Simulated scan of single mutants.
Amino acid sequence: MQNNRITKLFNIKYPLIQAGMIWASGWKLASAASNAGALGIIGAGSMYPDVLREHIQKCKKATDKPFAVNVPMLYPDIEKIMEIIIEEDVEIVFTSAGNPKTWTKHLQDHNIKVVHVVSSVKFGLKAEAAGVDAVVAEGFEAGGHNGRDETTTLTLIPMITKELKIPVIAAGGIANGDAMLATMILGAEAVQVGTRFVASHEASSHINFKNEVVKAKEGDTQLTLKELAPVRLLKNKFFNDVQELYQQTPTKEELIKLLGRARAKKGMFEGDLEEGELEIGQISGLISDILPAADIVKNIISELEEAKKRVAQL
């Protein structure tokens, strides 16, 4: 596959990135994705600092390929997390949910490449001005926490690549090679894939959750809780409880009370399909099996090559 700015920046074989998702992206998934030629990411958002250190060390033993750590900057122990990332010589960091100015220069001063996740052109320009090496432009089809504007991936990518000079990685609603090619035609230089990797053997998420992802059909997810932090969820009892509360025009405090603590862990990691928060993307409706991460990478790249041939015949 032809090199581009992203494959050169990360020193990876394919312009394909496995997203750093909470309760799913531990060292097993990250190392498997990296060994297959993608860029694997450890999701630090659901890890205490000492747990993250353990995952980084295990990932290094499991792969000699580059891998990254994703850090949501709302993390309460953010200073300790960044300290561990520097101490353990992590080469690439994806930041999200915060101001990219806060940590970008500090990380780059330690020879760490920094990518920031954005959901709009405005935030993309801010990230570029902060000096990040690349951005992930994520459409609202994506699972988990999301942009308030509900801008779709196929709308966001051409608008953001038109304005930014740094490389753009497309995310949201991408689970196969056809979607990968579509976003790259629109100007992205790589894709970040989350939902498809949740339905992998190596994902640390609970098998109950993985099975729900496989069973999901079109329309089974919805963006909600915008007053707190917009999140795309599978519809279950907890989701229905949220919708019922909305009928009463709740205050922000009432929504926080219903959400409670560790709701995402309960659903995605512990497998409580009734009371848990099940964060997943719209593209789950296209996924019908749980596969090894290496097969997912292989399939996406194979589909990409086939899609290129079809486009060449148009």
Rank of each mutant, 00 (worst) to 15 (best):
M1W: 00
Q2H: 14
K8N: 11
K8G: 03
L16E: 14
I22Y: 10
G26Q: 12
L29A: 04
N35D: 12
A38E: 13
S46C: 13
V51E: 15
H55Y: 10
A68M: 08
A68F: 10
P76V: 05
I84G: 05
E88Y: 08
S96P: 06
W103Q: 11
Q108T: 06
D109V: 08
H110A: 14
I112G: 05
V121F: 00
L125P: 03
A130C: 07
G139L: 06
E141Q: 11
H145E: 13
R148G: 14
D149V: 02
T151H: 08
T151N: 09
T152W: 09
M159E: 04
L164I: 00
A175D: 04
M184V: 03
E189N: 10
A190Y: 03
Q192R: 09
A199D: 07
S200I: 15
H201K: 15
E202G: 03
A203P: 04
A203E: 04
I207H: 10
K210P: 05
V213I: 15
A216P: 10
E218H: 14
G219R: 13
L225F: 08
K226S: 14
K226W: 15
P230H: 00
L233R: 02
K235A: 06
N236F: 06
L245C: 12
L245F: 07
L255I: 15
L259C: 00
A262N: 08
E275M: 02
I280C: 12
G285V: 01
I287T: 12
S288R: 15
S288D: 15
L291V: 02
A293F: 07
K308L: 13
A312T: 08
A312G: 07
